[in-house]
């Protein structure tokens, strides 16, 4: 089993953190993982994205050309990544911020009100956690408890209030699909 994932959005939407949390959770469940972020100039202004590969086999290429799963946080990312999703793949998109509707019919499209749910929980910036919750429920790739552990490994300086809010965002996302 190999799953190739691309997560994309504006810088500041927690795209890189999401990728690291996924990779970390994959490792915790004894899978092989790679994580590769866009870095440098691309982070400023435009979209930030990262590629995560989670596999039961050793990972050959960290470069993902046609992902099984994409997580789209903003409009420009939809334009860029919808066309390259593998046929039969899954596209999650942040319906709160994206007005366009994905057109592909050969993939599963899952709209998530990520920002609306995050705001409801009291914090727009945890929309990425909502998306991750939905992703792991739909794909079955990892356990939600492992992600909860992984986000604690990632946000070492965050207080318990923030961490449990993140947990709730993961749960809310999980319940969306």
């Amino acid at each position: 089993m190999t799953m190739e994932i691309i997560i994309s959005g504006f810088g500041g939407q927690g795209v890189v953190s999401s990728g690291i949390i996924l990779a970390h959770a994959g490792l915790t469940e004894d899978k092989n993982v790679t994580f590769f972020p866009s870095y440098g100039a691309e982070m400023r202004g435009g979209t930030a994205n990262c590629s995560v590969v989670i596999s039961t086999d050793p990972v050959a290429s960290p470069i993902v050309a046609s992902p099984d799963v994409v997580v789209i946080m903003n409009e420009p990312s939809l334009t860029r990544f919808e066309p390259i999703v593998k046929p039969g793949g899954i596209l999650f998109y942040n319906k709160t911020l994206i007005k366009s509707v994905p057109k592909r019919t050969d993939i599963t499209v899952i709209p998530i009100e990520a920002n609306a749910i995050a705001e409801e929980l009291g914090q727009g910036r945890i929309a990425n956690m909502v998306m991750l919750g939905a992703l792991i429920k739909k794909t079955g790739i990892l356990k939600v408890d492992t992600l909860k552990m992984a986000q604690r490994e990632r946000f070492t300086k965050a207080g318990e209030d923030q961490l449990s809010l993140n947990d709730r965002a993961l749960d809310r996302g999980y319940d969306q699909v």
């Binding site: 490792l27 590769f36 870095y39 960290p62 470069i63």
Partner: peptide, 10 residues
């Protein structure tokens, strides 16, 4: 190269 330096792996 930049990819090896910037990527994460176990």
């Amino acid at each position: 190269d930049g990819l090896l330096g910037q990527m994460m792996e176990p």
